[in-house]
Design a protein around this nucleic acid. Structure first.
Length: 568
DNA sequence: GACGTTGAAA
DNA sequence: GAACATTCAACGTC
C-alpha cells in the first residue's frame, strides 16, 4: 500500500520540474504547464531552436548552428548535457547525446590565423580525419592551397572560405587579426537631453564586453540576441563607446535610421553634424553614418553592380553595426565577406531567418556572443512581464456566405471587421477597469464605429497633430483611459504608455511591425501588461496568428488562445 | 520640393 | 477620404 502511494507520489513528482521530452528524432518537447517550464526554457534556449509553440507543448530542436552558437557563447558540453537530462522526463536517447557531442566537437577543429606572409592567412585543422576529408573537397581546393597541417588562403577569401566550410558542416574559429579604423573619441551622456539620468545597464555592458573580448584573437565580431524592448540601440551605442572609432550603422528602414540618430543625439555627446544619414533621401558620409540595407543593395538593374557598396570603402570604418541582423538581405553577404577585417556586431531578437541562411550570418557577421536571459530582464523589471491573449471569435452566420464567395483580399477584410469584435472589446474593457487601454486597428471604418460605441477618442492618419497631442495628454493625465488608434499612429509619433492593448485588426504578416507595436506598449512598468488580439475563427486571419505566436514565444512572452462565445 | 510610378528583393 | 497581407530607391512629372 505504502509502496503504491510512494509510487504515485514519485509519479507526480516526476512531472514536476521535468518539462522536457527529448525524442530520438531530435525534437524536444516542452510541457508549458509544468512548474519547471520557464526554468527549462531558459536552460535550453542557448543551444536549441524553437520550431513551433502552440498552447500546450512547444517544440525545440538541436541543430548544428544552435549547438555552435551555444559553444561560441561559452557553453560547455557538460552544461548542455546537464540541462537536457536534468529537465528531461525520460532518459535522453543515446543517439541524441552522440549527435550533440559530434556537433559540439566540430566547433574549434578548424582555426584561421595570420601568417608571416603579407596578405596570406592559414587554416589549421586540428583533427587528422577532418583534414583528410577536407583535402578531398573540391570547393575548398579551389579557394585555398594545401599545407601540411591545413590550408593557405588569400586575405580576400577570408569570408568565402568560412562560408564554404560551414556549408559542409565545419564552423571556423576566426583568430586572424582585425583592422583598426579611424579614431573617433566621444562620451556617453550621464543625463539625456530631456534631463533623465542615463547609463547602460549591466547586461548591455556585458553583451558588449562579450563581443569586444579584450581584443583577444577571435573576438571583435559577433551577434547579440536581445528581447524586444531590451535596448538594442543602447548595446550598439555602448559598442561604439567601447571602441571609440568611426562607425557604420545598418538598419532595415528609414524610420529606424531616424530612431538611431535621435538616440545618438539624445544619449551621446556626438555633435549632430558628425552623424550622417545615408538613405534614398540623403547621402551623407560622416564619422558616424546610419544607412538602410535597401540603399546598399540597390542597383539600377539585375545586371549591374551595386553602386552603393562603395560606402564600405569610403572611410576606414572601425565598427559596423548590423541592426536586425536576421533581416540582412542576401546580397549583403557578398560585401560582408569582403570586409572580414572590420569589427562588427549583429543585433537581433531572433537568429532564425526565413531563407535558412543562418550559417552565413554565423560565419560572416559572427556567432552569438551573448543572449540576454529574458526571465532575468523580467524579474528586474527591465522589460514588462507580458501576457498575450488571442481571442478567437466566430463569424456571424449572415457573413458566412459573403465570406465564402469573396476573393482573398475581401475575405481578409470581412474577417477583420467581424462585428462581434466590438462587443468582445467592450467586455474586455469592462473586465479590466484599472488599465489604460489602447485599441489598435487597421480599418478606419471599423475604428470609427468602435470609438463611437466605446465613447473614446479616435486617432487616425488624418487627425491633426495638435488634436493628437491633446488626446495623448488626456490619456497621460488619466482623464481618458481608452484611446482608439489606427495603424498610421504606429509610426513617428510617441504613443503614451499603456498597460493593455487590444488589437482588433492588423497586418499580421509583418513581424517587424508587430514587434514595434508591442515594444511601444510593453514598456517597463510596475505591473504586468496585457495584449489581446481578436481574430475571426476559421478565416485567413488565423493563418497569421501562427506566425505571430511563434515570434512572441521566441521573445519569451506567454501566449494563450481563448475562444469567445457570444452567448456569454 | 511634393507626389506618383516602377522595379527589385526574398 | 479610404485603402494598403512590404519596403525602399530612383526617376519621372507637376
Amino acid at each position: 500500500m505504502a509502496c503504491c502511494i510512494l509510487q504515485a507520489l514519485s509519479g507526480i513528482l516526476a512531472h514536476m520540474n521535468t518539462p522536457l521530452i527529448v525524442q530520438s528524432d531530435g525534437s524536444i518537447l516542452l510541457d508549458v504547464h509544468d512548474p519547471g517550464a520557464d526554468e527549462a526554457r531558459s536552460a535550453i534556449a542557448g543551444f536549441t531552436e524553437l520550431i513551433k509553440s502552440p498552447e500546450h507543448m512547444h517544440t525545440y530542436r538541436i541543430t548544428p548552428l544552435s549547438v555552435w552558437n551555444g559553444a561560441s557563447a561559452g557553453l560547455q558540453l557538460a552544461e548542455i548535457e546537464q540541462s537536457l537530462s536534468g529537465y528531461s522526463r525520460f532518459p535522453v536517447p543515446g543517439n541524441i547525446l552522440f549527435q550533440l557531442r559530434d556537433l559540439y566537437s566540430r566547433y574549434g577543429v578548424i582555426t584561421m590565423h595570420a601568417t608571416d606572409e603579407e596578405g596570406i592567412l592559414e587554416l589549421q585543422v586540428h583533427n587528422p580525419d577532418v583534414l583528410a576529408e577536407l583535402q578531398e573537397n573540391r570547393e575548398l581546393n579551389k579557394l585555398t592551397e594545401q599545407t601540411a597541417s591545413g590550408f593557405r588562403l588569400h586575405l580576400y577569401q577570408r569570408g568565402t572560405v568560412k562560408q564554404t566550410l560551414i556549408h559542409i558542416g565545419y564552423p571556423v574559429q576566426d583568430l586572424a587579426p582585425l583592422a583598426e579604423g579611424e579614431d573617433y573619441p566621444f562620451a556617453l551622456r550621464k543625463t539625456t537631453t530631456s534631463g533623465r539620468p542615463f547609463a547602460p545597464r549591466e547586461y548591455q555592458v556585458a553583451a558588449v564586453e562579450s563581443f569586444v573580448g579584450d581584443g583577444r584573437p577571435g573576438t571583435g565580431f559577433g551577434t547579440v540576441v536581445l528581447a524586444c524592448g531590451a535596448g538594442k540601440t543602447i548595446v550598439g551605442m555602448q559598442a561604439m563607446y567601447r571602441l571609440q572609432t568611426s562607425t557604420l550603422i545598418l538598419t532595415t528602414n528609414i524610420a529606424a535610421v531616424h530612431q538611431w540618430i535621435r538616440e545618438l543625439v539624445d544619449k551621446t555627446d556626438i555633435p549632430r553634424e558628425d552623424i550622417g544619414e545615408y538613405t534614398g533621401e540623403r547621402k551623407e558620409i560622416k564619422p558616424i553614418t546610419v544607412a538602410t540595407y535597401q540603399i546598399l543593395v540597390w542597383r539600377p538593374d539585375v545586371e549591374s553592380d551595386f553602386p552603393h557598396f562603395s560606402l564600405f570603402s569610403s572611410r576606414r570604418w572601425g565598427l559596423i553595426i548590423y541592426d536586425e541582423v536576421h533581416l540582412l538581405p542576401a546580397p549583403m553577404f557578398r560585401v560582408t565577406a569582403e570586409i572580414q577585417a572590420v569589427r562588427r556586431i549583429g543585433l537581433t531578437a531572433t537568429l532564425v531567418r526565413e531563407d535558412g541562411r543562418e550559417g552565413d550570418v554565423f560565419s560572416l557577421v559572427g556567432p552569438k556572443r551573448y543572449d540576454v536571459p529574458w526571465k532575468e530582464l523580467e524579474e528586474r523589471g527591465w522589460i514588462a512581464a507580458a501576457e498575450c491573449h488571442e481571442i478567437r471569435l466566430p463569424l456571424p452566420a449572415e457573413l458566412k456566405i459573403p465570406y465564402a464567395t469573396a476573393d482573398k483580399r475581401a475575405k481578409f477584410r470581412i474577417a477583420s471587421e467581424n462585428p462581434l469584435k466590438i462587443e468582445a472589446t467592450r467586455q474586455l474593457i469592462a473586465k479590466h477597469p484599472q488599465d489604460a487601454i489602447l485599441v489598435i486597428g487597421q480599418y478606419v471604418a471599423q475604428l470609427k464605429k468602435l470609438a463611437a460605441e466605446l465613447n473614446a477618442p479616435l486617432i487616425t492618419g488624418s487627425t491633426p497633430n495638435q488634436q493628437r497631442e491633446e488626446i495623448y495628454q488626456q490619456f497621460r493625465d488619466g482623464e481618458q483611459r481608452i484611446i482608439v488608434v489606427s495603424k498610421v499612429a504606429n509610426f513617428a509619433i510617441d504613443l503614451p504608455d499603456a498597460s493593455m492593448a487590444i488589437q482588433v485588426s492588423g497586418t499580421f504578416g509583418s513581424r517587424q511591425e508587430e514587434a514595434q507595436r508591442l515594444g511601444r506598449i510593453l514598456r517597463p512598468k510596475d505591473r504586468n501588461v496585457l495584449f489581446f488580439s481578436l481574430v475571426s475563427r476559421f478565416t485567413t486571419e488565423e493563418q497569421f496568428s501562427a506566425n505571430r505566436q511563434k515570434f512572441l514565444t521566441e521573445q519569451g512572452y506567454k501566449y494563450h488562445i481563448e475562444l469567445y462565445d457570444p452567448e456569454v
